[in-house]
Amino acid sequence: MPIQLNEARYAYPDGTVAVDGVDLRIEAGERVAIIGQNGAGKTTTVKMMNGLLRPSSGQVEIDGRDTAQHTTAQIARDVGYVFQNPDDQIFGSDVQGELEYLPRSLRWPEQRRIERVTRAAAMTGIGAFLDLNPGDLPFAIKKFVAIGAVLVGECRYLILDEPTAGLDGRGLALLRLLIDQLEAEGVAVITITHDMRFVRDCFTRVVAMAHRQIIADGTVAEVFGDDGVMRDAKLERPEIGELARRLGLADASAGVAELADLLV
């Protein structure tokens, strides 16, 4: 069963419309990047997916269940959300406690708690930091602590808000491996990002938003190759893809290795 938005609209109390009539379906195991400039409606759209916001009109369903009939905590068990700034999410006095908060609050059996915490720490590479205060850790490590805390749960959909911000090459490589593993396990990964190289390298489906609506939904090549969409979304293609496109060697989704092979 998928995440399904049907004519979803959200207006703030002052009447400002943030999302206006969005139809979107995301299946389990998909890798979906939602792109667009600030104010396009990306964050509001994904917050409606996990119950942080409720649509003013229209409907949001998670695996056939209307979010209007469930609490945010209930929805979050299926749709995990990792904030852009980990300081907005982390509150534990040590990393171990941060990872154990959810299973302890839900009173999971000890063995299940240990297994899920161990798994999340291994997937996010934070095993060496379990005894440390998250506030003392570098920003990039804190981002993985926040991801790990969500992965301890058994969500079927994971939303990542600007996950590459503040990551170095090692962090980016770990993030890509993490997304690969989640896809293999049937977990859908949904990101909102301005990092077009990350989109090109890690995602198979791209949803472009502008003017509070979806203006394109397709493969990386389809969306990046549409001048009108990229112009309306106010986004630039990755430099290598743009070069490949201008040389007529490949489409705009091309990466460094692909372009090098074509030039050789």
Rank of each mutant, 00 (worst) to 15 (best):
Ala184Leu: 12
Gly255Pro: 09
Phe198Glu: 00
Gly36Ile: 01
Gly135Leu: 10
Phe83Gln: 11
Thr71Phe: 00
Gln89Val: 08
Asp20His: 06
Leu259Gly: 09
Ile26Arg: 08
Arg9Cys: 10
Ala120Asp: 03
Ile90Ala: 03
Glu183Val: 05
Leu177Tyr: 03
Ile34Asp: 05
Glu7Gly: 11
Glu162Trp: 06
Lys142Thr: 08
Val32Pro: 03
Phe203Glu: 01
Ala68Gly: 15
Leu235Ala: 08
Asp201Phe: 01
Trp108Tyr: 10
Lys42Thr: 02
Gln69Arg: 15
Gly166Thr: 08
Asp94Arg: 14
Val207Arg: 06
Lys143Pro: 04
Ala128Asp: 15
Glu242Lys: 13
Val82Glu: 04
Gly255Gln: 08
Arg212Asp: 07
Val19His: 00
Arg9Phe: 00
Thr16Cys: 03
Gly153Gln: 09
Leu106Asn: 09
Ala76Pro: 02
Leu249Glu: 06
Gly29Tyr: 07
Leu177Phe: 03
Gly153Lys: 02
Thr67Lys: 06
Val220Lys: 01
Leu243His: 09
Arg156Asn: 14
Thr16Arg: 14
Arg31Thr: 14
Thr164Asp: 10
Glu98Thr: 06
Leu177Trp: 15
Asp23Asn: 15
Phe83Ala: 08
Ala146Ile: 07
Glu27Trp: 07
Asp217Lys: 11
Lys142Met: 07
Leu52Asp: 10
Phe139Ala: 13
Phe203Thr: 06
Arg77Gly: 01
Pro134Trp: 06
Tyr12Val: 12
Ser93Asn: 15
Gly166Asp: 07
Leu24Cys: 12
Ala188Gly: 13
Arg54Val: 13
Val199Lys: 01
Asp227Trp: 02
Leu102Gln: 11
Gly248Glu: 11
Leu172Trp: 00
Gly127Asn: 04
Val22Asn: 11
Gly135Met: 09
Glu258Met: 00
Asn38Ile: 06
Val152Gln: 03
Arg65Met: 08
Tyr12Ile: 02
Gly21His: 07
Phe203Ala: 10
Thr118Arg: 12
Arg54Thr: 15
Pro103Trp: 04
Gly171Thr: 07
Gly36Ala: 02
Leu130Asp: 10
Ala128Thr: 12
Ala260Thr: 14
Gln84Trp: 00
Gly225Thr: 12
Leu99Gly: 04
Val152Asp: 01
Asn85Arg: 13
Arg156Asp: 11
Arg170Glu: 14
Gly36His: 05
